[in-house]
Design a protein around this nucleic acid. Structure first.
Length: 635
RNA sequence: GCCGAAAUAGCUCAGUCGGUAGAGCGACUGAUUCGUAAUCAGUAGGUCGCAGGUUCGAUUCCUGUUUUCGGCACCA
């Protein structure tokens, strides 16, 4: 039988069926066959040696293409699995996909893998690559597969066949050489030799079977993998650089903050770190004012009955701190919203007053699981740039759109342009009817559409009271953190009895929007530090300028210059230590001070200063008033 | 919270196959006044995370615990 194969350029050629991708590639050129990784058949990626038996549009995917890279990484996972089973018989295989930079595979084994094991496993992987084992796809009968894996003691694979694969679904098995196989959707490279050498095992960690904490604990081995050795090398280099930007490291080096054993998950802000905080806070306060918020302040602890009414006690009591006095139990606030509702409820509101927007730099405590703590990014005591908008349902879309635009402007002002916008939809554990959730989710979608942004939807990730839009930023090693959010909440007004009087004098529930732009001040400052590698923009730098005299004869003049700068509201210091100018320059450069003003005898006599700006070796000497004007312009 | 690892001077780290520890930087003191990324010399500084156990003797071995790190789960 002959089939028609359509090539990417539109050419059509007849082949005797079955024909494989590899054969087609060889027909074009041996070079292409060598570079080929997989073949795209219509819109699906297939193995090169999988027989094509029908008319199809095809394109050969060479190993330098992104789609091929995913296959290479997936292959690496399988080679890893085989290596582990050869080295550690009795270890069960489960799943092993490609990731953004490599791959992982999850194993069930009683004995933990050690760092030394990783080295041995990686060597075994290279050996399997060298053996160049053919990789072949087979379609198995479901019962046969079940029987095989059960007989092999692979209970996790067997469970997956029973519970994870639909009865009518095709079950594919990939054989790697004669003695090893795995159940897998594929596609894969034609042989292990095609994997190449650009991979490296990097760490091992514990995970739960099927991502559920109630299930068995597995061990996940992570690797990184690229198409070429140069790319791997570049990646490892980049990671090394990224580690230098770690906010925990820079926080210490730049003397911004510290944390200690007696206060896990909490931050001791040092003067320089607090200066950054103040700069951020004053900026955000300006945003509050500009966008119609009134700043308020609620109490830090409130009777637990209030938290029972709000629903927080039911959902989060495990993660709340409590304190007691005179036989009453108080909850240390984990959120500011119930407090804001009390402020709202203290007065009577007409529909004409809405929207009412309250804002607070609200300090919250949440007893986060110990394993979740991470520097100042995930803490147990934090401050939100929190705000709550009480409005009518028809005002929601406009408020959300306005918020979005304001938030994007704020991120841009701090130097962030690469934001991920996500829409978190109804979770399993929730309040309210499905109809209410439909309305809420659609209102947020409409607002995002109106704002003209692309967003990702996250089913099941919403808050218990409503859906939310989330804004995410990445840290130096690629971990994604939520910063801003706006959340739709029809539940809290109901539970805490908030209302307004509508046009026909009826008491009606407002909608409440919870919103934050920087989110947690702690987390945001952590991300700021990493994003700028500690070299914060001038307006955020804790010390904006250092005046450094060359000889002690210039000390008086240096102090005068420093006082002048401070008088203009700049954060300046004079470095009058008995050290050489080289020493001072080096130290302040390492401290990432944006401006160093060097003054020697000459400057003191002529009333000039020599400016040295961060990142620029060239110097410029200019009169004091001009230098001052220059610095003021940098704010 | 779960799996794994780690914790030594202010910081970065070395070390002790069980005999109570060392470097560099920093700090302090003195000398030096030196024009754009480290001047020289000297001094001080540590219950080796905490609590038990084994031992003649523990920072080292064992157990527990706290915190941190990596991963997962969680993240109102």
């Amino acid at each position: 039988m002959s089939i028609q194969i359509t090539f990417p350029d539109g050419n059509v050629k007849s082949f005797d069926a079955p024909v494989t991708g590899l054969a087609i590639a060889q027909g074009i050129s041996p070079g292409l066959a060598k570079k080929a990784a997989v073949i795209k058949v219509d819109d699906a990626l297939w193995d090169l040696n999988r027989p094509i038996v029908r008319d199809a549009r095809i394109s050969i995917i060479t190993r330098d293409k992104p789609e091929a890279l995913e296959v290479i990484r997936h292959d690496a996972a399988h080679v890893l699995a085989q290596a582990v089973q050869e080295l550690f018989p009795g270890t069960q295989i489960t799943f092993g996909p490609a990731t953004e930079v490599g791959f992982y595979y999850d194993f069930a084994r009683d004995t933990p893998f050690t760092e030394a094991d990783l080295e041995a496993i990686e060597n075994k992987m290279r050996e399997i690559v060298k053996r160049d084992l053919p990789i072949k796809r087979e379609v198995w009968d479901r019962d046969a597969a079940l029987k095989h894996f059960e007989a092999a003691g692979e209970s996790f694979k067997a469970e997956w066949i029973r519970e994870g694969i639909a009865a009518d679904e095709e079950l594919s098995i990939y054989r790697q050489g004669d003695n090893w196989l795995d159940m897998c959707l594929g596609p894969h490279l034609p042989s292990t030799g095609k994997l190449g050498s650009a991979f490296k095992l990097i760490r091992v960690g514990g995970v739960y079977w099927r991502g559920d904490a109630n299930n068995a604990q597995l061990q996940r081995i992570y690797g990184v993998c690229f198409a070429t050795d140069d790319e791997l090398k570049a990646y490892l280099k980049q990671m090394e650089e990224a580690e230098k930007r770690d906010h925990r490291k820079l926080g210490k080096q730049l003397d911004l903050f510290h944390q200690q054993e007696e206060a896990p998950g909490m931050v001791f802000w040092h003067p320089k770190g607090w200066a950054i905080w103040q700069a951020v806070e004053q900026y955000v306060r300006g945003v509050y004012k500009a966008s119609g918020y009134q700043e308020v302040r609620g109490p830090q602890i409130m009777d637990v009955s209030l938290w029972k009414r709000s629903g927080h006690w039911d959902n989060y009591q495990e993660n709340m701190f409590f304190t007691e006095s005179e036989k009453r139990t108080y909850a240390v606030k984990p959120m500011n919203c119930p407090g804001h509702v009390q402020i709202y409820n203290a007065g009577l509101h007409s529909y004409r007053d809405l929207p009412i927007r309250y804002a607070e730099f609200g300090g919250c405590h949440r007893n986060e699981p110990s394993g979740a703590l991470h520097g100042i990014m995930r803490v147990r005591a934090f401050t939100q740039d929190d705000g709550h908008i009480f409005c009518m349902p028809e005002q929601v879309e406009g408020e959300v759109t306005a918020f979005h635009q304001q938030a994007m402007q704020v991120y841009a002002d701090f130097g962030f342009t690469d934001l991920a916008v996500k829409l978190a939809l109804r979770p399993d554990k929730r309040l309210g009817t499905d109809e209410a959730w439909d309305r809420a989710e659609n209102a947020l979608r409409a607002a995002l559409r109106a704002a003209g942004v692309a967003w990702e939807e996250l089913p099941g990730e919403g808050a218990f009271y409503g859906p939310k839009i989330e804004y995410h930023l990445k840290d130096s090693i690629g971990r994604s953190w939520q910063v801003g959010t706006i959340q739709f909440d029809p539940m809290m007004p109901e539970r805490l009895d908030a209302s307004y009087i509508d046009e026909s004098s009826q008491r009606v529930r407002p909608i409440m929007l919870h919103r934050a732009i920087v989110g947690s001040m702690e987390r945001f400052i952590g991300i700021l530090i990493e994003h700028h590698a500690g070299a914060l923009p001038f307006w955020l730098s804790p010390v904006q300028a250092v005046v450094a005299p060359i000889v002690s004869d210039a000390d008086g003049y240096a102090s005068e210059v420093c006082e002048l700068l401070k008088g203009e509201g700049l954060r300046a210091q004079a470095d009058l230590r008995n050290e050489k100018i080289n020493y001072k320059i080096r130290e302040h450069a390492l401290q990432k001070i944006p401006v160093i003003l060097v003054v020697g005898r000459k400057e003191a006599e002529e009333r000039t200063v020599t400016l040295r700006l961060r990142g620029i070796d060239a110097q410029e000497t200019l009169p004091l008033d001009q230098a001052l004007a220059r610095l003021k312009a940098m704010r």
